[in-house]
Amino acid sequence: MEKFVKLIDTAIPLPTENIDTDQIIPARFLKSTDKNGFGDNVFRDWRYKKDGSINEDFVLNNTNYSGSILIAGDNFGCGSSREHAAWALAGYGFKVVISSFFADIFKGNALNNGILPIQVPKDFLAQLLKKVTDVPDTAIIIDLENQVLKTPIGNVDFEINSYKKLCLLNGYDDIDFLISKQNEIKAFEAKMV
């Protein structure tokens, strides 16, 4: 996994609430057996019309907005456990998702793929969405080490599990850690009935 330390970039505003993983990557694109290529189909049915033409109204098709930060409405990533949603966001180039609430499984999947989910208060989210919508080249700074999100409308400290923070900063994953605990796991198995 790539290390995540600090990021300065512009953001894409997507104020819709309850964006589920079926919207992030529809099930018909889950037939691949590797992790690559999902970025092409991220938000597929919002980006393209049924006839395959581009939906000009959707923010990812608006050339005013760009960047590796996605700012989304409340309860982002609900629904299916498909990690393909995280692969699709990462494949498209997103490194950070900011929302006022994240669904559990998505949050874990994002962290396991080097995407940082940042939870901010609802009011702040609304203000930030407005700011970025009005001023597309608004620069946002994410300082993971100090757990601060810096924006022109103010700075917000964000929470992250200290173990996960360590993983992101160093590019470790859980498999390395669990393998290092093999002896404890074996001992536990031996005690089991």
């Binding site: 456990s81 498909r82 990690e83 393909h84 995280a86 499984i105 874990g108 999947n109 396991n112 793929n113 994953d173 859980d174 498999i175 669990l178």
Partner: peptide, 10 residues
């Protein structure tokens, strides 16, 4: 409970 594919690997 449901898990992501990274957790399947774990």
């Amino acid at each position: 409970f449901g898990i992501g594919t990274s957790q399947v690997a774990q």
